[in-house]
Design a protein around this nucleic acid. Structure first.
Lengths: 217, 217
DNA sequence: TAGATTGTTAATCGATTAACAATC
DNA sequence: TAGATTGTTAATCGATTAACAATC
């Protein structure tokens, strides 16, 4: 029974993969952990350890083959399989995410449908993806064995909608609301907390504006 | 010279504040660190240490006054002052963020204007916020002493646009592109990396789907 | 070959958790 | 008063960095 990989390692692997894919696009054949370290600011020993988790083996002096490295990281993140998702809440943010569907598809997530209660939205298509009424969610999710629910409803509806998602047999929620969801231990919740991100920016900006002379890294 | 606060502490403080504000809305007068620990899943000692950073002092047996705690965390995060921001790239995601302007305003960030090159967008208003051509960005940012640049352009333009933001005297970039920006040490970059977040979700989902019997926390 | 890069083991650092005295 | 909660110091844990042997 392997121990779980730390979240920060997974996020770094996603970053490396992004850079590896860019190198691939530029036609480069090899890339070294040292180069990735310079590009990301991560310590080179850390990069090597992170890469080791995916099982790739590099060649001393040469580095890693770009193609093999991209595949190894992609496999590890499960981006080389297709996982199907429903999006619930086709407001501004939901629509913006639907616009990214191609990018998500290259990362193994396919959004099959969106759901909303707004009659102006229902039975239309947004960026090519059909929008159904929310009451159809549970039935369709079960029949199609959907694995991911993308939650983009207003905060007041967040918990109730999360409950609906879980009752529909979905194990993973990508939560874009600022609400701290209460779920059982069997459900995975990944939060995209914009306000927490803004907090980091605000606090650090305030710090440097108050100490204008001090250099920071 | 105080040492910098860790990013994870700042994010937790943002979460606590969210819960404190909800308690305030419900008319509650006091809230304990213990209660915040239960609601967030953070260890209660950790909550106390985090709160101590803001300078609030609680009352043994009683807890913290909701109003005072909200103010202390807000002050620490610099959400009780107004910081002005420009948004650059009024695409789908940019528009979605403009729709959140009231929520950002309660967190001390005021978006004064958006910028885009699309002639259909220029000189319109999106959610009440005017959209100007990108060539006006530098001049306006300097004249108005803007502190935050919100970056929501396509990835290919991310670095060049970041350079423009920095040349305009802005010190803080809220980066919504998947691009790893290269900046000098004087610029603060806070990344909202959707793909890294998706990576965490994908990897963890894959792990539990592969080990269906095993319980996880 | 020499040197750059790899993978790994040991040391350090920082964050989390445990323990406990103080107090309304 | 007794007990719940606070703030703080000490112990533990995990992640990062340093050191180094192996190798194309």
């Amino acid at each position: 029974m392997m121990k779980p990989i730390s979240i920060i390692t997974i996020k770094r692997l996603s970053q490396y993969l992004q850079l590896v894919l860019e190198a691939q696009k530029r036609g480069e054949e090899r890339i070294s952990a040292t180069a990735l370290a310079h590009l990301t600011g991560v310590h080179m020993t850390q990069v090597r350890k992170d890469l080791a988790i995916t099982g790739v083996v590099g060649v001393p002096k040469v580095g890693h083959k770009v193609d093999a490295l991209a595949e190894a990281i992609g496999d590890f993140l499960n981006w080389n399989d297709v996982t199907e998702a429903f999006l619930i809440g086709a407001g501004h943010l939901g629509e913006a995410l639907l616009a990214y569907q191609e990018a998500f598809a290259t990362k193994g997530m396919k959004i099959l449908a969106a759901f909303d209660n707004n009659p102006d939205k229902v039975d239309t298509k947004v960026h090519g993806i059909p929008v159904y009424p929310v009451e159809k969610f549970a039935n369709l999710a079960q029949r199609l064995h959907i694995h991911i629910g993308i939650l983009t409803v207003p905060p007041e509806q967040a918990q109730a909608t999360a409950d609906l998602i879980i009752q529909s047999g979905i194990r993973a929620i990508w939560n874009f609301t600022p609400t701290q969801l209460v779920t059982g231990p069997k459900t995975i919740v990944e939060n995209v907390d914009l306000f927490a991100s803004l907090a980091v920016l605000s606090q650090r900006l305030a710090t440097i504006l108050k100490n204008p002379t001090e250099e920071h890294r």
